[in-house]
Design a protein around this nucleic acid. Structure first.
Lengths: 225, 225
DNA sequence: TCCGTAATACTACCATACAAGATGGGGGCT
DNA sequence: AGCCCCCATCTTGTATGGTAGTATTACGGA
């Protein structure tokens, strides 16, 4: 089961980028953290060049901001941009859900049940990191089963940002189990071959996610811009 | 009027990436072309490092493919992926059009009329490159006016691929003028505050674009995978 | 005490050099 | 002849040194 643990992949630059991305989304590197090429390179036992390429990759997805000749910082969370991100993601994923309900790859269908079960176990253990990883795998499998894996690429970066914000809102085991139930509801509509219901279920799913964000912003204003 | 010519921006890596991206989309570098870090560096009078970073950036948007220790090539066009891309873009832009019809920034509204006029002139002159540039500016302005500039970021990479394919289909001045008319139709629905009509107009607009692609694939099989 | 100025200590950026892997061709062996 | 192995020559990947630019800080004057 390496579907969940796959850091040692390819070049040093890719490894470091994956590790930094994970750390940022998991809030191990909170918004505002200053990142130094030197320190990261020393910590990973490589030179500054691969680290630099990793940071450029992260800057492209807006997870960090590179200020020329000044430094690199983890970008702060913007509630406004989160709402825009949710809008875009909703547009894509409701369309995917609708298509999934019209025709779904049977082979991918059985895999999804396993993913949901594993995600539920992670939620019961209150294992935040693995929960989010299985959440991601669910959405990937849904897109692939619907026949548009490219849609996931478009959602991927957006979801990364949202996951980071969700790390503040998703604290209790109950809220995580709610999301699992919503996943099951989506698949129920897909199985029923009901496009409108599937889109509506996805719509409700995504609307829930960031509901608590404004409250969190009031509690941790330093993490927001 | 620098809105259309903005290559000399920032670092050497960014300049080179922008230049290569333009060349790839304009088919100056056809699919399958082998790109050598050495040659590009020599041609631009810089070292390999910035070129390398530029190629990494292009690889991230799937315009080129880097084969470790082997070489870098301009990716070939895939009709299947183009259809998937159109699906995703349609999902986003119809949602944007719907939102635009609900509320639109007046300041952005007047700018759009200018862009459409300029695009029409470019179509009449059969100036393919500038036509596509104004097409891009139109869609950007629409997203901004609708209040979700982030949506454009999600569409940007997808549109780049589609524009490359359109370079083969958009040959006559008439087809370009058709697209301009469709832009006007979209804005007419937006002005009428009719979300469904705006979404439908956008839908028709995007459906047209790749209609001729299969025929082109039969004519130039070497450009496709 | 406060402010303007200059030196200092960082940063990202670029150039150069080196290393590691992959390919293609040629020569020798079977 | 056909196959295999080795080597020359590409490629990308990594390491290191140096440069230009910015923020900070120390310092001298009012």
């Amino acid at each position: 089961m390496d579907a969940i643990t796959s850091p040692p992949t390819g070049s040093a630059a890719q490894r470091i980028e994956a590790e930094l991305r994970r750390a940022i989304i998991a809030m191990d590197l909170p918004p505002g953290t200053r990142l130094s090429e030197q320190e990261i390179a020393a910590a990973h036992g490589v030179s500054r060049q691969p680290v630099r390429e990793a940071l450029i990759g992260l800057a492209r997805t807006r997870l960090v901001e590179i200020l020329p000749q000044r430094g690199t910082v983890v970008v702060k969370i913007s509630t406004r941009k989160m709402m825009e991100a949710r809008f875009v993601r909703e547009a894509i994923e409701t369309a995917v859900a609708r298509r999934a309900a019209e025709a779904f790859d049977p082979a991918a269908r059985v895999k999804i049940d396993d993913l949901i079960d594993l995600q539920q176990k992670a939620a019961q253990r209150n294992a935040h990191g693995t929960f989010q990883r299985y959440d991601e795998l669910f959405h990937i499998a849904l897109a692939e089963g619907a026949g548009c894996p490219l849609a996931w690429e478009a959602v991927s970066d957006i979801k990364a940002h949202m996951d980071r914000a969700c790390h503040l809102t998703l604290t209790s085991s109950e809220t995580m189990l709610d999301l699992v139930a919503q996943h099951r509801a989506i698949m129920a509509a897909v199985d029923a071959r009901d496009p409108d219901a599937a889109a509506e279920a996805m719509h409700r799913h995504l609307r829930e996610i960031l509901r608590a964000l404004p409250k969190v912003e009031a509690e941790h204003p330093d993490l927001f811009e």
